[in-house]
Amino acid sequence: MSWILTLMAPILGGLLYGIERKLKARMQSRQGPPLLQPFYDLFKLSDKRPMMIHSFHAAMGIVHFAAAWVALAVLFFGGDLLVAIFFHLLSAALLIVAGYSARSAYSRIGSTRELIAIAALEPVLILSAIGFYLHSGSFEVSAILNAPPSLLPSILGFAALLIALPGLLKKSPFDAAEGHQEIVGGAEIEFSGRFYEAVYTAKWLDMIFVFTLVFLFGGNNLLLGITLAVSAFLTVVFADNATARVRYTDMVRILYSVAFVLAAANLIVGVVL
């Protein structure tokens, strides 16, 4: 099962991305693209003339995708949650390195914003993982899934993660790192064709990764886990539609003053009380 989930992850992610685009369009009273549009995009990208600004930059896009896939594999094989988060952050870090290596102001500013977003999001992710540990007594995903649901005992941690989700997925209001109308996609701007395909698919894997984290709050209650993941997905799509992008400084302020405080409170409640 772990193998199948890991191998199917890009396809599941593509479908999820297709559903998101469709849902977003319907929220805006539009027809929206077909459900399989992300896959049509992939075919189109693979047909494009191969171009790159330099080899290192292009290769980092592929390694970024590989790291995102490894992060998911750690989760699906029931591995250590902290290790999975490490690979997820490594994936983001590799895209930042790629962004810095391009001689483009948009790419470099996007990379720096991405870095600042990580600085605000990483503590929340780590503290959420510690919340799982406090409840299940282990960082192993397999142990967390065998323990009773941690939603109520770690409700503050869940709230913190929910607030951080748009940032992790670069969705509005925390999409300053991409800022299409402002910095033209940030660190991703210089990728094209098959190299952009890797970056594009990594986004799908990121979606699966973060909603799997939400799913873990259901513990051994599969139905609760699925309900939480679907609810979180709808919340993120709604927030993306209904909110405007905040400045990167406000993003850091909001994430530290609300999400981090909630995650820290969850830790205090779990350890001290």
């Binding site: 191969p50 171009m51 790159m52 600004i53 330099h54 292009a58 001689r103 483009s104 948009y106 210089e190």
Partner: peptide, 10 residues
Amino acid sequence: FKGVDRVMPY
């Protein structure tokens, strides 16, 4: 990478 055209950044 071989066979890939190099372009200037946007």
